[in-house]
Design a protein around this nucleic acid. Sequence first.
DNA 1: ACACTTTTTTAGAATCATTATAAACTACTT
DNA 2: AAGTAGTTTATAATGATTCTAAAAAAGTGT
Lengths: 132, 132
Amino acid sequence: MKYTEKLRNSGLRPTKQRLQICEVLFETEKTFHFTINELSLKIKKQIDNKISLATIYNTVHAFEKKGYLKQIPINSNETYFDTNVSDHHHFYDLKKEKLIDLENADVGPIDIKRKIDGKKIKSVEILVKLED
Amino acid sequence: MKYTEKLRNSGLRPTKQRLQICEVLFETEKTFHFTINELSLKIKKQIDNKISLATIYNTVHAFEKKGYLKQIPINSNETYFDTNVSDHHHFYDLKKEKLIDLENADVGPIDIKRKIDGKKIKSVEILVKLED
DNA sequence: ACACTTTTTTAGAATCATTATAAACTACTT
DNA sequence: AAGTAGTTTATAATGATTCTAAAAAAGTGT
């Protein structure tokens, strides 16, 4: 299996559950955004056996820590994740509660002029809220 | 009282609780960031009578709706608010878990080139994560 | 001031995402 | 095969937020 190595290299044991979650997350043409609840439903549809909710939480957090997933900073009662870990930004449709990727080319260059002593910039994330 | 009119003009009755919360929120030299829990403690310290938690939630949401407060998009289990409602962005010091205001002048102009049909931009918020 | 309507406050309960627990299970090592 | 360290699991616990419905306060008209 193609994800076995990837997991081993990260220090994560390639368990059946993790490999199956990899399939659901990364075996897609396009990247996508999800909440744990949405992912849980997706897994139920695509996988025969049951994966417990706790395992889904554990796995998503483990993957996020390893850089295979990104958390999207957004004010919502649910945490949003993104399988697109490249540098990019988001629209957030407030009505539909849906995220839309903004390709890097869709946003002019960002120039952060201020510096904080002893700190370096890890990421710059833009959230563009949309209303009707 | 100086906030009475402000509230009336927004269609909010200037109740004792709302006026007191105005004092705590806006009667400060500098603007600040807070969670509901932090605000609740600040109120307990500064105000003699008790204001119920439900009222604090109600009031903060009412003020946010009227534009007197801003929610800050950030991944945390608690919602962060800002008394600085001017157009500005934030640094987030990952180590200290602290927000720092970025004045608008600290960030070059943001150009969102992509448009979504039937939607208009409500806000553009940048979160710059800082590491050591 | 009084009566009446509407809004607001409140304590407590309910909700819901997330995390903790601890026992059973699985993967890895020797 | 045995040992151990990591993982999964159901379930309970946590904790922020929202809901409820009754009491209180504010606004309005007389």
